[in-house]
Amino acid sequence: MKNTGDRRRTIYDVAKAAGVSISTASNALNGTGRTNAETRERVRRVAEEIGFRPNALARGLLSKRSHAIGMLTNDTYGRLTLPMAAGVSEVLVDHGVSVFLCATNNDPRLAQLHLEALLDRQVDGIIFTATRLDLEPPVQLSRLPIPVVYVFAEGPADSVTFFPDDEQGARLAVDHLKELGRSRILHITGPKDYLAARIRAQSYLDACGDGAEAMFGDWSEEWGHEAVQTVFARPGPKPDAIFCGSDEIARGVIDALRDLNVEIPTDVAVVGFDNWEVVARQTRPPLTTIDMELKELGHRAGLAILSLSKGEPVPAGITRLPCRLVVRQSCGSPLQSD
Protein backbone atom coordinates (compact mmCIF):
# COMPACT_ATOMS: atom_id res chain seq x y z
CA MET A 1 0.00 0.00 0.00
CA LYS A 2 3.00 2.29 -0.48
CA ASN A 3 2.59 5.67 -2.09
CA THR A 4 4.11 5.42 -5.55
CA GLY A 5 2.56 8.51 -7.14
CA ASP A 6 3.48 12.16 -6.92
CA ARG A 7 0.06 13.37 -5.74
CA ARG A 8 -0.16 14.59 -2.15
CA ARG A 9 -2.29 12.17 -0.13
CA THR A 10 -5.35 13.56 1.68
CA ILE A 11 -7.58 12.54 4.55
CA TYR A 12 -10.00 11.19 1.92
CA ASP A 13 -7.33 8.71 0.76
CA VAL A 14 -6.71 7.60 4.33
CA ALA A 15 -10.41 7.07 5.03
CA LYS A 16 -10.91 5.08 1.82
CA ALA A 17 -7.84 2.88 2.38
CA ALA A 18 -8.78 2.22 6.03
CA GLY A 19 -12.44 1.55 5.23
CA VAL A 20 -13.78 4.24 7.57
CA SER A 21 -15.59 7.55 7.22
CA ILE A 22 -13.67 10.81 6.80
CA SER A 23 -14.73 12.01 10.27
CA THR A 24 -13.55 8.74 11.85
CA ALA A 25 -10.19 9.00 10.08
CA SER A 26 -9.81 12.60 11.24
CA ASN A 27 -10.71 11.72 14.84
CA ALA A 28 -8.27 8.81 14.83
CA LEU A 29 -5.38 10.91 13.58
CA ASN A 30 -6.10 13.85 15.89
CA GLY A 31 -6.88 11.79 18.99
CA THR A 32 -10.38 13.20 19.27
CA GLY A 33 -13.85 11.69 19.39
CA ARG A 34 -14.67 8.17 20.59
CA THR A 35 -12.73 6.11 18.07
CA ASN A 36 -11.72 2.75 19.56
CA ALA A 37 -8.05 1.81 19.92
CA GLU A 38 -8.09 -0.80 17.14
CA THR A 39 -9.52 1.67 14.60
CA ARG A 40 -7.11 4.41 15.65
CA GLU A 41 -4.16 2.08 15.16
CA ARG A 42 -5.41 0.91 11.75
CA VAL A 43 -5.99 4.46 10.51
CA ARG A 44 -2.57 5.63 11.69
CA ARG A 45 -0.87 2.63 10.11
CA VAL A 46 -2.65 3.23 6.80
CA ALA A 47 -1.76 6.94 6.90
CA GLU A 48 1.92 6.07 7.32
CA GLU A 49 1.83 3.43 4.58
CA ILE A 50 0.32 5.71 1.95
CA GLY A 51 2.52 8.67 2.91
CA PHE A 52 -0.18 10.94 4.35
CA ARG A 53 1.05 14.00 6.25
CA PRO A 54 -1.51 16.10 8.17
CA ASN A 55 -1.92 19.66 7.02
CA ALA A 56 -0.30 21.80 9.73
CA LEU A 57 -2.55 24.79 9.04
CA ALA A 58 -5.72 22.72 9.29
CA ARG A 59 -4.44 21.03 12.45
CA GLY A 60 -3.71 24.44 13.91
CA LEU A 61 -7.21 25.68 13.14
CA LEU A 62 -8.67 22.68 14.97
CA SER A 63 -6.44 23.02 18.02
CA LYS A 64 -6.13 26.82 17.94
CA ARG A 65 -2.33 26.33 18.08
CA SER A 66 0.29 26.69 15.35
CA HIS A 67 2.57 24.03 16.87
CA ALA A 68 5.54 26.38 16.47
CA ILE A 69 7.46 28.61 18.85
CA GLY A 70 9.98 31.37 18.18
CA MET A 71 13.42 31.91 19.72
CA LEU A 72 14.78 35.45 19.71
CA THR A 73 18.47 35.87 20.52
CA ASN A 74 21.21 38.47 20.34
CA ASP A 75 23.82 35.69 20.17
CA THR A 76 25.19 36.24 16.65
CA TYR A 77 27.70 33.37 16.78
CA GLY A 78 25.42 30.90 18.56
CA ARG A 79 27.98 30.03 21.26
CA LEU A 80 25.30 30.01 23.98
CA THR A 81 22.09 29.87 22.00
CA LEU A 82 22.74 26.86 19.75
CA PRO A 83 23.14 24.39 22.66
CA MET A 84 20.04 25.90 24.29
CA ALA A 85 18.10 25.71 21.01
CA ALA A 86 19.09 22.05 20.69
CA GLY A 87 17.67 21.44 24.16
CA VAL A 88 14.45 23.27 23.29
CA SER A 89 14.04 21.25 20.08
CA GLU A 90 14.66 17.95 21.86
CA VAL A 91 11.72 18.39 24.21
CA LEU A 92 9.37 19.90 21.61
CA VAL A 93 9.91 17.57 18.66
CA ASP A 94 7.94 14.70 20.23
CA HIS A 95 5.01 17.11 20.62
CA GLY A 96 5.11 18.05 16.93
CA VAL A 97 6.28 21.59 17.71
CA SER A 98 8.80 23.38 15.49
CA VAL A 99 11.29 26.08 16.55
CA PHE A 100 12.09 29.23 14.54
CA LEU A 101 15.45 30.69 15.63
CA CYS A 102 15.91 34.42 14.93
CA ALA A 103 19.14 36.35 15.65
CA THR A 104 18.65 40.06 16.43
CA ASN A 105 22.34 41.09 16.41
CA ASN A 106 21.40 43.56 19.19
CA ASP A 107 19.57 45.62 16.55
CA PRO A 108 16.15 46.80 17.83
CA ARG A 109 14.84 47.26 14.26
CA LEU A 110 15.86 43.74 13.25
CA ALA A 111 14.42 42.39 16.49
CA GLN A 112 11.09 44.09 15.76
CA LEU A 113 11.01 42.67 12.23
CA HIS A 114 11.68 39.15 13.53
CA LEU A 115 9.03 39.55 16.21
CA GLU A 116 6.43 40.71 13.68
CA ALA A 117 7.28 37.77 11.41
CA LEU A 118 6.88 35.32 14.30
CA LEU A 119 3.54 36.87 15.26
CA ASP A 120 2.40 36.70 11.62
CA ARG A 121 3.19 32.98 11.73
CA GLN A 122 1.00 32.83 14.86
CA VAL A 123 3.63 31.06 16.94
CA ASP A 124 2.35 29.62 20.23
CA GLY A 125 5.03 31.35 22.31
CA ILE A 126 8.48 32.96 22.32
CA ILE A 127 11.71 32.13 24.12
CA PHE A 128 14.08 35.08 24.50
CA THR A 129 17.73 34.29 25.16
CA ALA A 130 20.86 36.42 25.25
CA THR A 131 24.61 36.40 25.85
CA ARG A 132 24.38 37.90 29.32
CA LEU A 133 22.00 37.51 32.23
CA ASP A 134 21.31 41.23 32.66
CA LEU A 135 20.50 42.11 29.04
CA GLU A 136 17.02 43.48 28.50
CA PRO A 137 15.18 42.41 25.32
CA PRO A 138 15.60 44.82 22.39
CA VAL A 139 11.82 44.80 21.87
CA GLN A 140 8.86 44.92 24.23
CA LEU A 141 7.82 41.33 24.95
CA SER A 142 5.84 41.67 28.17
CA ARG A 143 2.60 42.76 26.48
CA LEU A 144 2.41 40.13 23.78
CA PRO A 145 -0.78 38.05 23.45
CA ILE A 146 1.32 34.85 23.66
CA PRO A 147 3.51 33.50 26.49
CA VAL A 148 7.20 34.42 26.72
CA VAL A 149 9.95 32.53 28.56
CA TYR A 150 13.36 34.05 29.28
CA VAL A 151 16.52 31.95 29.42
CA PHE A 152 20.00 33.35 30.11
CA ALA A 153 18.40 36.80 29.90
CA GLU A 154 16.56 39.24 32.12
CA GLY A 155 12.76 39.13 32.18
CA PRO A 156 10.09 41.09 34.07
CA ALA A 157 9.55 40.27 37.75
CA ASP A 158 6.51 38.10 36.98
CA SER A 159 8.12 36.20 34.08
CA VAL A 160 9.32 32.61 33.80
CA THR A 161 13.12 32.85 33.69
CA PHE A 162 15.93 30.27 33.70
CA PHE A 163 19.55 31.07 34.67
CA PRO A 164 22.63 28.93 35.24
CA ASP A 165 23.61 29.01 38.93
CA ASP A 166 26.83 31.01 38.58
CA GLU A 167 27.37 31.21 42.34
CA GLN A 168 27.22 27.43 42.68
CA GLY A 169 29.41 26.97 39.59
CA ALA A 170 32.15 29.24 40.98
CA ARG A 171 31.99 27.42 44.30
CA LEU A 172 32.45 24.10 42.47
CA ALA A 173 35.63 25.43 40.87
CA VAL A 174 37.10 26.79 44.09
CA ASP A 175 36.17 23.70 46.12
CA HIS A 176 37.84 21.48 43.52
CA LEU A 177 41.06 23.48 43.70
CA LYS A 178 41.05 23.43 47.49
CA GLU A 179 40.50 19.67 47.52
CA LEU A 180 43.64 19.38 45.37
CA GLY A 181 45.60 21.26 48.03
CA ARG A 182 45.73 24.66 46.33
CA SER A 183 45.62 27.61 48.73
CA ARG A 184 46.70 30.71 46.76
CA ILE A 185 43.85 30.89 44.28
CA LEU A 186 43.57 33.87 41.91
CA HIS A 187 40.42 34.75 39.96
CA ILE A 188 40.70 36.30 36.47
CA THR A 189 37.33 37.12 34.92
CA GLY A 190 35.39 39.30 32.48
CA PRO A 191 33.97 42.85 32.64
CA LYS A 192 32.64 44.01 36.00
CA ASP A 193 29.45 45.33 34.39
CA TYR A 194 28.42 41.72 33.58
CA LEU A 195 26.15 40.29 36.26
CA ALA A 196 27.55 36.78 35.75
CA ALA A 197 31.12 38.02 36.27
CA ARG A 198 30.16 39.76 39.51
CA ILE A 199 28.25 36.74 40.84
CA ARG A 200 31.13 34.34 40.12
CA ALA A 201 33.68 36.74 41.59
CA GLN A 202 31.69 37.24 44.79
CA SER A 203 31.26 33.49 45.21
CA TYR A 204 35.03 33.07 44.79
CA LEU A 205 35.78 35.86 47.30
CA ASP A 206 33.36 34.39 49.85
CA ALA A 207 35.02 30.97 49.49
CA CYS A 208 38.63 32.17 49.60
CA GLY A 209 38.41 34.93 52.22
CA ASP A 210 41.28 37.25 53.13
CA GLY A 211 43.95 37.67 50.48
CA ALA A 212 41.69 36.62 47.61
CA GLU A 213 41.93 38.76 44.48
CA ALA A 214 39.47 39.04 41.58
CA MET A 215 40.80 40.70 38.43
CA PHE A 216 38.16 42.03 35.99
CA GLY A 217 38.87 42.56 32.28
CA ASP A 218 37.63 41.29 28.89
CA TRP A 219 36.19 37.91 27.92
CA SER A 220 39.30 37.22 25.85
CA GLU A 221 42.52 35.22 25.62
CA GLU A 222 44.41 38.51 25.41
CA TRP A 223 43.13 39.58 28.83
CA GLY A 224 44.02 36.23 30.39
CA HIS A 225 47.55 36.53 29.01
CA GLU A 226 47.92 40.14 30.17
CA ALA A 227 46.61 39.42 33.67
CA VAL A 228 49.11 36.59 34.23
CA GLN A 229 52.00 38.77 33.05
CA THR A 230 50.90 41.49 35.51
CA VAL A 231 50.60 39.11 38.46
CA PHE A 232 53.90 37.30 37.86
CA ALA A 233 55.77 40.60 37.42
CA ARG A 234 54.80 41.68 40.93
CA PRO A 235 56.93 40.86 43.98
CA GLY A 236 55.67 38.41 46.56
CA PRO A 237 54.07 34.94 46.51
CA LYS A 238 52.59 33.75 43.26
CA PRO A 239 49.27 31.90 42.87
CA ASP A 240 49.29 28.12 42.83
CA ALA A 241 45.88 28.05 41.11
CA ILE A 242 43.91 30.33 38.81
CA PHE A 243 40.13 30.18 38.46
CA CYS A 244 39.11 31.84 35.18
CA GLY A 245 35.73 33.37 34.39
CA SER A 246 35.64 31.83 30.91
CA ASP A 247 37.43 29.18 28.87
CA GLU A 248 38.80 31.83 26.50
CA ILE A 249 40.41 33.65 29.41
CA ALA A 250 41.77 30.32 30.65
CA ARG A 251 43.44 29.59 27.33
CA GLY A 252 45.19 32.97 27.47
CA VAL A 253 46.22 32.23 31.06
CA ILE A 254 47.71 28.87 30.08
CA ASP A 255 49.62 30.39 27.14
CA ALA A 256 51.07 33.10 29.40
CA LEU A 257 52.10 30.58 32.08
CA ARG A 258 53.83 28.49 29.43
CA ASP A 259 55.67 31.60 28.17
CA LEU A 260 56.93 32.11 31.74
CA ASN A 261 58.04 28.46 31.97
CA VAL A 262 55.49 27.78 34.69
CA GLU A 263 54.44 24.13 34.72
CA ILE A 264 50.71 23.35 34.47
CA PRO A 265 49.35 21.83 36.64
CA THR A 266 52.48 21.12 38.75
CA ASP A 267 53.14 24.77 39.64
CA VAL A 268 49.76 26.32 38.85
CA ALA A 269 46.39 24.60 38.38
CA VAL A 270 43.87 26.24 36.03
CA VAL A 271 40.06 26.01 35.93
CA GLY A 272 37.85 27.64 33.31
CA PHE A 273 34.13 28.38 33.07
CA ASP A 274 31.82 27.46 30.12
CA ASN A 275 33.00 24.02 28.97
CA TRP A 276 33.27 25.39 25.44
CA GLU A 277 34.60 22.09 24.18
CA VAL A 278 36.28 23.42 21.04
CA VAL A 279 38.46 25.48 23.40
CA ALA A 280 38.62 23.33 26.54
CA ARG A 281 39.64 20.10 24.80
CA GLN A 282 42.29 21.79 22.66
CA THR A 283 44.21 23.58 25.42
CA ARG A 284 47.48 21.97 26.51
CA PRO A 285 46.84 20.42 28.94
CA PRO A 286 43.07 20.00 28.36
CA LEU A 287 41.09 22.35 30.56
CA THR A 288 39.15 21.50 33.70
CA THR A 289 36.10 23.75 33.58
CA ILE A 290 32.54 24.44 34.71
CA ASP A 291 29.70 23.42 32.40
CA MET A 292 26.64 25.71 32.54
CA GLU A 293 24.39 22.91 31.26
CA LEU A 294 23.07 25.02 28.39
CA LYS A 295 21.16 22.15 26.82
CA GLU A 296 19.36 21.50 30.12
CA LEU A 297 18.45 25.20 30.27
CA GLY A 298 16.92 24.70 26.82
CA HIS A 299 15.05 21.60 28.02
CA ARG A 300 13.52 23.52 30.90
CA ALA A 301 12.64 26.53 28.75
CA GLY A 302 11.08 24.28 26.11
CA LEU A 303 8.92 22.45 28.64
CA ALA A 304 7.84 25.75 30.18
CA ILE A 305 6.81 27.35 26.87
CA LEU A 306 4.99 24.14 25.89
CA SER A 307 2.96 24.18 29.12
CA LEU A 308 2.21 27.90 28.86
CA SER A 309 1.09 27.52 25.24
CA LYS A 310 -1.44 24.91 26.40
CA GLY A 311 -2.74 27.24 29.10
CA GLU A 312 -1.13 25.23 31.88
CA PRO A 313 0.32 27.09 34.88
CA VAL A 314 4.11 27.48 35.26
CA PRO A 315 5.58 29.11 38.41
CA ALA A 316 6.91 32.59 37.72
CA GLY A 317 10.32 33.80 38.89
CA ILE A 318 13.96 32.91 38.32
CA THR A 319 14.97 29.25 38.36
CA ARG A 320 18.73 28.71 38.72
CA LEU A 321 19.96 25.39 37.35
CA PRO A 322 23.12 23.86 38.88
CA CYS A 323 26.36 23.84 36.93
CA ARG A 324 28.65 20.80 36.56
CA LEU A 325 32.40 20.37 37.07
CA VAL A 326 34.17 18.77 34.09
CA VAL A 327 37.57 17.43 35.18
CA ARG A 328 40.40 17.29 32.64
CA GLN A 329 44.18 17.59 33.04
CA SER A 330 44.80 21.27 33.85
CA CYS A 331 44.47 20.78 37.62
CA GLY A 332 46.34 17.52 38.12
CA SER A 333 46.20 15.29 41.20
CA PRO A 334 46.14 16.36 44.88
CA LEU A 335 49.40 17.95 45.99
CA GLN A 336 51.71 15.76 48.07
CA SER A 337 52.94 17.28 51.31
CA ASP A 338 56.73 17.53 51.72
Rank of each mutant, 00 (worst) to 15 (best):
K2C: 00
T4Q: 06
D6Y: 00
D6I: 04
D6S: 11
Y12H: 14
V14F: 06
A17S: 11
A18C: 05
N27I: 00
L29F: 06
N30S: 14
G31H: 10
G31W: 06
T32K: 14
R34H: 11
R42A: 13
E49P: 05
F52K: 02
A58L: 10
L61F: 14
S63Q: 12
R65I: 00
H67F: 15
D75S: 06
T81N: 03
L82Q: 01
A85I: 09
V88E: 02
E90F: 06
L92C: 07
D94E: 15
G96E: 08
V97E: 08
S98D: 14
S98R: 12
V99A: 04
D107Q: 11
L110Q: 15
A111S: 14
Q112Y: 00
L119I: 07
V123T: 09
F128S: 02
A130N: 08
A130K: 09
D134C: 12
D134F: 10
Y150D: 07
F152W: 07
G155N: 03
F163V: 01
F163H: 15
Q168H: 13
A170F: 04
H176M: 11
H176A: 08
L177Y: 09
K178V: 08
E179Q: 15
G181Q: 09
G181K: 06
I185D: 08
H187C: 15
I188E: 13
K192G: 08
Y194M: 14
A201L: 07
L205T: 13
C208A: 02
G211T: 10
F216T: 03
E222D: 15
G224K: 05
A227R: 10
V228G: 12
Q229K: 14
T230Q: 15
K238A: 04
D240R: 10
I242Y: 06
G245W: 07
V253W: 04
L257V: 04
R258Q: 13
A269R: 08
A280D: 03
P286M: 10
T288S: 15
T289W: 00
M292D: 00
E293Q: 15
G298P: 06
I305N: 04
I305M: 05
L308I: 04
R320P: 00
L335M: 14
